[in-house]
Design a binder for these strands. Structure first.
Lengths: 143, 143
DNA sequence: TATTGTTATACTCTATAACTATA
DNA sequence: TATAGTTATAGAGTATAACAATA
């Protein structure tokens, strides 16, 4: 309980406003690599760890499993992901990045980080670190 | 340019994830007051300053002017906003809160701040202040 | 019977364009 | 002719439910 008066917009409003702005900033970069926002999100998750089911993948990026299917179809067709039935349980699809998928993700992320820096450089280095750490912590522990 | 390796999710992903979560947290509160997210956004803007046109109001909350109209119809019908033609230029609608609108906004916002505190209390007080200030600054200066 | 993945459908949200009225 | 507001329509994005394959 801080005794200070908090004269600021609501948290959801600030997050969604800045979030929409950053999505708009990312859009041209992703388009240059011919990949959608959901496609990029899939590559990001699979880079950190392969997944055993599409349902788990969908949950981890906050998407419905049904709307991931066209995305996975496209990524597979372009040779960016592997997606093969598990011999031990042929209902599930083992998911992972191909080298091409890894390379594309790396290239796109590098450009995205440069675009983010333009925004984040408005903050002093210490505030920037605190901001990013807080944002990551709140997102992972609650959402 | 910080020389540190930045092993974190992309900024847009973190913002949208936490933003969606906070919207979900707000939803039951707004529903209890029988008001939509856009309706609440309108009340918030008008509390800070009356507006001279609906187009300006739409722009200030990042919405299309056409999708604001049913929202304004509803708010007006419930006596939460005033919306009268400007005698000096009868094309424009002068917009402002009624006392009832101001009271409803205040009540809802109080509950929303309490819900936000549950999340924000995970941060040390200093980090919390830095986080909120940074978020507000980045949102207003760029988006 | 339960679970994974898929397809088809319906629904919500949003943007586009056309219209009215004022200036 | 230009602008504010409104209406109608179409499009994108998303979720719901039914289905097929496997356990």
């Amino acid at each position: 309980m801080s005794g200070e008066a908090e004269d600021r917009p609501d948290l959801a409003a600030m997050l969604m406003r800045l979030g929409r702005h950053m999505v708009a900033v990312e859009q041209p970069i992703l388009a240059a690599h011919d990949i959608s926002m959901w496609g990029y999100a899939v590559l990001t998750v699979l880079r950190d760890e392969p997944m055993r089911t599409q349902t788990a993948l969908a949950r981890s990026i906050g998407a419905d499993k049904t709307r991931l299917i066209p995305v996975l179809d496209e990524l597979q067709k372009r040779g960016l992901i592997e997606r093969e039935p598990d011999p031990a349980d042929r209902r599930v699809r083992l998911l992972g990045l191909t080298p091409a998928g890894r390379a594309l993700h790396q290239a796109a992320q590098t450009e995205i980080r440069e675009a983010e820096a333009v925004l984040l450089d408005q903050l002093p280095a210490g505030d920037r670190r605190t901001f990013l750490r807080a944002l990551e912590k709140l997102g992972t522990e609650s959402a």
